[in-house]
């Protein structure tokens, strides 16, 4: 299945050629979870603070579906 993945806040450094906010098409097997996706992308789990799937908070074990918009963030805050 194909996912639309974005990384932000410095996480782009783990993926060669990636830049923040730029959507990446990632092909992965059905049954993939957030955790297996991170492993495929070679982003260490402890670098990721917030995961949004289709704009909703997700956890490491959540199953992903074809076409999901997945975004990974380090710790962020402000206001």
């Amino acid at each position: 299945m194909i996912l639309e993945v974005r990384v932000f806040g410095g996480l782009e450094k783990w993926i060669p050629g990636a830049s923040f906010g730029k959507p990446m098409e990632v092909k992965t097997a059905r049954g993939a979870t957030v955790r297996t996706l991170l492993q495929e992308l070679k982003i260490p789990e402890d670098q990721v603070f917030t995961i949004l799937v289709n704009g909703v908070h997700a956890s490491m074990g959540d199953l992903l579906r074809p076409g999901d918009r997945v975004a990974f963030f380090p710790p962020v805050g402000g206001g």
Binding site: F8, G9, L52, P75, G77, G79
Partner: peptide, 18 residues
């Protein structure tokens, strides 16, 4: 970690994704 790296405007992308 978060605020000292990018300041408050680091919120732009997460608020957008949300």
């Amino acid at each position: 970690q978060g605020l000292p790296s990018y300041g408050t405007n680091v919120l732009m992308n997460i608020i957008n994704e949300a």
